[in-house]
Amino acid sequence: MIEFLRRLLGQRGSSATAKERLRLVLMTDHLELAPEMIETMKRELVEVISRHVEVDRERIDVSFERQDSALAMLANIPILSVNRPSSNGNGKRDEIPPAPRDAAKPASPKRRTPAKASAEGQAPPTRRRRRRKKPAPAPAPATN
């Protein structure tokens, strides 16, 4: 009966939960199994950010965290100095000196990358992955 009502309400049984949990756990597995990919991402992040600010390369910390139905990439990138003055376009970040002009952003492949923002390891579109061990080409999404 409960099952029937659930279906009536459009909810599915445990298989939907299973799929969701699997998707997340596999993403985590893949990341753990590809430390060199994380290194590559770090390096490329730094490259992009360093165009605008000087960062402390030694103390960069990248980690991954589950957030509801997504895997989040957390990048902590200490900034040593800001290269150029900027127009301070967005008020979201307070602890960290604002990154330069918004115009610079499109150059960065990561979504809300800089400093303490978290770039969501986005979900499905990358179904056809599977080439893990290769050093990830350019800006590999976290799903790879």
């Binding site: 099952e3 599915r12 445990s14 298989s15 299973a18 056809r128 992955r129 599977r130």
Partner: peptide
């Protein structure tokens, strides 16, 4: 069980594994 939503379907499995 697949029909009642209690087992992953073959599509689900293929989706997740991409094989």
């Amino acid at each position: 069980m697949v029909s009642s939503g209690e087992m992953l379907s073959v599509d689900d499995v293929c989706d997740v594994l991409a094989v």
